[in-house]
Design a binder for these strands. Structure first.
Lengths: 333, 333
DNA sequence: GCAGCATTTGCACACGCTTGCAAAAAGCGC
DNA sequence: GCGCTTTTTGCAAGCGTGTGCAAATGCTGC
């Protein structure tokens, strides 16, 4: 390692002609310092380029200001948007985001949480995967807060934020029926995430209430390519579906492209499609996809509000509604 | 704050029946411990759920293991892909990424770097914006390493990674000419980033060499909507361009959609388009955009290799080539 | 001027770890 | 067993900060 030499509070104290504790207090909101000394300190700090050492501060205060964001598939439109919103809100709350990528292998969520503990993160937000109970309990036991977004397994003590996937799925059935569709299909990935499965189950259940069956196709991971593959399977059936609910917008885009360019179907005349997430591409004029908007802003705000509140925060569960955005991929919007 | 109670090295030492230093050494690769004590320690640690406190370790070692990634527009396809690659490489190198979002206002890059100093980050990677020289000097003076990606201003002591934008732009002119185009245009945003401007200047220069003029239109920020607006301006001219080089793929997608759906032009027959970045959407079958692939993997690898090398790392500059990916938006690929 | 009070200041300890140093233990050849 | 070298171990100092406590300072009203 090259020699590192940051300026310390001592140097600032010497330059300002005060004690080191005065420096410390000058940088602590609400501490007992006179205005004149605080000014002296701040000026000396400015001149020297002093910045409080948050490692040391975190060590003392037992509060690092760090919040771990545990994510896979960061490059995905939905994930990256949520990431943007979370980092923004965290910064507004005076925290800082530590990003842990869990793309490789699967025990990696556990390893991510261990990392969070090592850096004494105040909280961790889990956007992907599911940690083992043993480790989440370790987190909670050490006083670290835990937020789980769209992964409904019940971890007592943690804060769960979920969407009402079943309710949304029900509305899709209604929309399809109203559009005159009767051969319903559901396009999913093989990821098997709780929220994806809830959309599937909700869709099937609501269809059954209308006396309709649902063809389910699942393939690969939740992306554009999987949508094309699923389209291949669905649209070559003898009884071709006339309405497909896709578990995510990416699947929908892939499916839509295949339907149009490969099967020459026109949408929504011959095929109605609904997606989920309302990623940016859903509004592009090549797609104009009818889909559900995740309340990403609200999710981020709620998460940060909960994890930065003082005192003991007990676990709870919050269910938000997804807004149906009508565009042009379903007849009769 | 709720009471935080992490298990400390003392407890592990007591349980394992050794001294606290033994615990410390057991977790330090290459330290002088016998195998038997190391095992005793590791087992006790396992049982108690002990994790080394990296704040304290960082304080002592003067090396936090933290690398700050300073980014705006994280939700953008290109940025989020780069982010994914960087976090992955950092983790492989035993570092951890601290993500700082500079979406709000502009001095925020400076504030991001201050944050990096506060957490004693080993290095910072700047993907957006340009920090003031005063603060980057402060970083370098404190022994913090600096990597700048695609922002060519010369900060001595830092590591600059750039693409050969001008060379790429030259190849676009060649491709357009070979396709029989003669009315060239360049679509840009008003961001004015060095790399965007280099593409513009390079394109104009190369066109001039062929005796061709270029119509330049710039609008807004570098996104899909801007592409639509620019299309509006370019395609309503009396002398409509027959080839447009877009500074980014997002601009290209917007422009392409407008050209097709609003002006009913067929691509590439009536209009050739080239983009830049090779975002995922460029390969979607609605676009099949001919574009330049940024060597994102190489960028991330080089960046991480440089910032995690031991000893003194002196500033240098690396220029990488962008690969031209031929798809269907230019005639005669 | 002084007593009485509120505010400000400095000292010194604590936070959890790493590491140089010297002492203890282990290994080795005889 | 003894001298010797090599490895392992514990002690204690230090990293840069926050904060309780007691001493010091500044006010106020007389």
């Amino acid at each position: 390692m090259s020699q590192r030499d940051f300026v310390s509070a001592d140097e600032v104290a010497r330059r300002a002609g005060v004690s080191r504790s005065a420096v410390s207090r000058a940088f602590t909101p609400g501490a007992s310092v006179s205005d004149t000394t605080r000014q002296k300190v701040l000026q000396a700090a400015e001149e020297l380029g002093y910045q409080v050492n948050h490692l040391a501060r975190g060590l003392m205060r037992n509060e690092s200001g760090i919040v771990c964001l545990i994510v896979s598939d960061v490059a995905t439109p939905y994930r990256s948007t949520l990431l943007r919103e979370l980092t923004l809100q965290l910064q507004l709350a005076g925290k800082v985001a530590m990003l842990i990528n869990t793309d490789r292998s699967d025990g990696s969520v556990n390893r991510a949480l261990e990392q969070a503990i090592r850096y004494r993160a105040d909280a961790s937000v889990i956007l992907s995967g599911l940690p083992d109970k043993s480790i989440t309990e370790l987190c909670l036991r050490s006083g670290q807060r835990l937020v789980l977004i769209n992964r409904d397994e019940d971890q007592s003590g943690a804060f769960h934020i979920n969407l009402d996937d079943r309710e949304a799925a029900g509305r899709v059935v209604t929309a399809f029926v109203r559009a005159g569709c009767s051969r319903l299909a559901f396009a999913n990935s093989e990821a098997g995430t709780p929220s994806l499965m809830a959309r599937e189950a909700g869709f099937i259940a609501a269809a059954k209430e209308q006396g309709l069956d649902v063809i389910v196709e699942r393939h690969g991971s939740t992306g554009y390519e999987a949508g094309r593959v699923v389209a291949q399977r669905l649209l070559t059936r003898k009884e071709r579906p006339d309405a497909v609910f896709c578990a995510t917008d990416l699947l929908a885009c892939g499916l839509m492209d295949a339907a149009r360019h490969q099967f020459s179907l026109s949408i929504p005349q011959q095929l109605c499609i609904v997606g989920f997430d309302d990623i940016e591409q859903a509004s592009w004029s090549s797609y104009r996809l009818t889909t559900f908007a995740q309340p990403i802003g609200a999710i981020a705000r709620e998460a940060v509000a909960w994890l930065s509140q003082g005192g003991v925060a007990d676990g709870r569960s919050l269910t938000l509604q997804a807004d149906l955005i009508w565009r042009d991929s379903v007849r009769g919007g």
